[in-house]
Structures are given as C-alpha cells and as structure tokens.
Amino acid sequence: MTDRNDRWGELLRRANGGDAVAYAEFLTEVAPAIRTIVRGRSGDDSGNEDIVQEVLLAIHAKRHTWRETDPVTPWLYAIARYKTADAFRRLRRGPVQVPIGEHADRLVDEGQGDPTAARDLTRLLGKIDDRSASIVRAVGLEGESAGEVGTRMGMSEGAVRVAYHRAMTRLRHLAAADHEKDEM
C-alpha cells in the first residue's frame, strides 16, 4: 500500500513535469486497481471496462486536483469510487425496460452503443457543442475511423478519440438526467 503510494506518487510527479512515459506507466499500473474497485461494486465483469475507462478519463481530467505533497492513493481511490458509484447510479436508472414484443419492428436499426441507439439521440446531440456532436455522428453513427475524422477536422487521431469518449460520457449523463426528469 505504502509502496504503491510512493511509486505512483513518484510517477505522477514526473508526469506533472511532462514525462509521458511515467504517465503511461502510472495509468497502466493504476488500471488494475481501478478494475478491482469497479468489480467490487458490480459483482461481475460485464460492462466494467467502460467504467474503468471513465475513471481513467476522470483521473486525467482532474489530475490538477492532486497536490504533490498529498498521498496519491486516497486521491485515486476517491475518484474511482465516485465515478464508479456515479456510473452504477446511472445504470440502475438505466435505459427504460420495455417488453420487446411491442417494439420488435423498431429494433432492426438500433446499434449497440447505448446513447447512440437512443431514440432521441438527435435531440441529445443538439445539447452538446457542434464539434463534439459532429465527432459523435462521424465516429459513432457513420462508422468513420478516428483517423479519418481527425484529418477532416484538423485534429490528431488521439484528440478525436478523447473528444469522442468525452462526448459519449456527456451524452450518457444527459440521457440519465432526462430519464430522471421523466420519473419526476
């Protein structure tokens, strides 16, 4: 535990100084710990990896909230627990369950990605910024590769992937918020 804390703290300090190798090592080493936290909450393995990735993105987006003088593991686990709890809360409210029989004719067109398949996706896309929305359309609906979209929009492939992932997270949040409203 302390060993981990020291090692991860050292890696993250180097990452803060701009060391990409140390940062990759840090993320690679914390991923299994995050996976354990997610699995502890879900009890099984299905769909966990999406949540692990959400936690990794959250760590990335909020890495400025760690102070180099603080222990890193409490920070890390607090983020992982928060994001995991958040994800499961959303899943519980989850997509509305309807008997399949009534809607069998409408199932044909629906893809696998959850928010992309939502019937009101167009409306949800209207709520996020145009750039993110067009990335989701291109990658999620039209099946373009991140590289192609990147070339077209003047972004690196990696930037497109991160933007896509973030946009999907926001769409899931929006969909969950909508659902919450419906319940009230």
Binding site: A15, N16, T28, L57, H60, G158, R161, V162
Partner: peptide
C-alpha cells in the same frame, strides 16, 4: 476503444494545464 489505447492517448498529454490553482 481498448483501455490500452485510451491510456496511450491520455499519456500523450502528461502535464496538467498550467493555470491558477484551485486556491
């Protein structure tokens, strides 16, 4: 997207943006 790919993407941007601290 595989987790290793996500990590590789994130690692390309190691240092947090320089800006005023939370305080």
């Amino acid at each position: 997207m595989k987790t290793e790919d996500l990590i590789a993407t994130l690692a390309a941007d190691p240092a947090p943006a320089n800006g005023p601290s939370l305080e």
